[in-house]
Amino acid sequence: MSSASRDSPLFSDFCRLLESISARKGTDLKKQRLEKYVQEWRARYGDFFDAMRLLLPHLDKERTTYGMKEQVLAKTYVDVLGLGKDSEDANYLIHWRMPGKNKQYQKIVGDFASVAYEVIASRSTVIRGTMTVHDVNQQLDTLSITSGRQQQRDIIRHFFVNYTADEQKWIIRVILKELKVGMSENSVLNVFHSDAFNLFNVCSSLHKVCVDLKDPFIRLSTNDIAIFYPIKPQLAHKELPQDVPKAMGGTDKFYIQQKLDGERLQLHVKDGVFRYWSRPAGRARS
């Protein structure tokens, strides 16, 4: 769940960070901007988890799905905004991949969040963002555990009534689990801590990464696999049999798992408790 602390920065400031990172050319400049934000957050708010799960929504295993892809979001916004089903803006939302006659939309066709922003901006009455990063995470936590159409509509309406059009654009990107700012998960995690990427690979938990590596000057003392923290599986790699020892780093002792069709699972067992994960290491099943 989100941090228990209510002391949280404005979400509008977080959105400005994303805009700034997206506009910068080159990974080094993007990392420099993010590093400054992380330092300021640590100094004032401490736990970075609330921000990390918004920076890397596709890795947030506590919110594996929102049950809303582009088509559902489009229909929900048509409803929330009170658009006529056959209106031009409703058509742009529903058919966001197709170029229309409006030149403004032709430039952003194929990017649902940007199309939605253009439709929302002319109707939004929120001029200045007043909601915090913590507020956003609370709403997203609720959205992730609801499947009811009316509940989804109520949350999207809450976003429309309380957030600027620009903020809603980034919220939509989080819901779709793709920020499109030009930074890989490796880069983001390494800005947070030099051991963050390695730790995430053996625990698949952004929350654990933020807790265990809260101090950027303390290196990780151990990187062992732990029960009930699924490791990030290594992708299969094709090699000829005679080349396998070299591919394994020249060692004479290694393990190979034969690749078979079907489900590949991780099973963790302790004290009579069984939990298993599919290969993407999503939400645990007991």
Rank of each mutant, 00 (worst) to 15 (best):
133 V>S: 04
267 L>D: 05
73 L>E: 09
215 D>G: 13
172 I>F: 02
226 A>L: 15
208 K>E: 15
8 S>T: 06
221 S>M: 15
199 L>H: 04
93 L>R: 05
46 G>C: 14
266 Q>I: 10
180 K>L: 00
270 K>C: 04
195 D>P: 00
277 W>N: 02
125 T>I: 08
182 G>M: 10
39 Q>C: 09
3 S>V: 02
267 L>K: 07
238 K>F: 13
59 L>H: 05
204 S>D: 10
128 R>P: 00
192 F>L: 13
51 A>Q: 04
86 D>N: 11
218 I>N: 13
172 I>P: 08
18 L>S: 04
149 R>Y: 14
214 K>G: 14
197 F>M: 08
181 V>H: 11
126 V>I: 09
279 R>A: 02
284 A>K: 07
242 Q>P: 00
225 I>D: 10
114 S>D: 11
183 M>H: 10
39 Q>W: 11
66 Y>N: 09
104 Q>S: 05
267 L>E: 09
41 W>I: 14
165 A>V: 07
193 H>W: 05
190 N>S: 02
34 L>N: 02
189 L>W: 12
128 R>Q: 12
206 L>S: 10
226 A>K: 15
164 T>R: 11
25 K>M: 01
228 F>W: 13
95 H>Q: 10
120 I>C: 00
259 K>Q: 10
177 K>R: 15
239 E>T: 00
14 F>M: 05
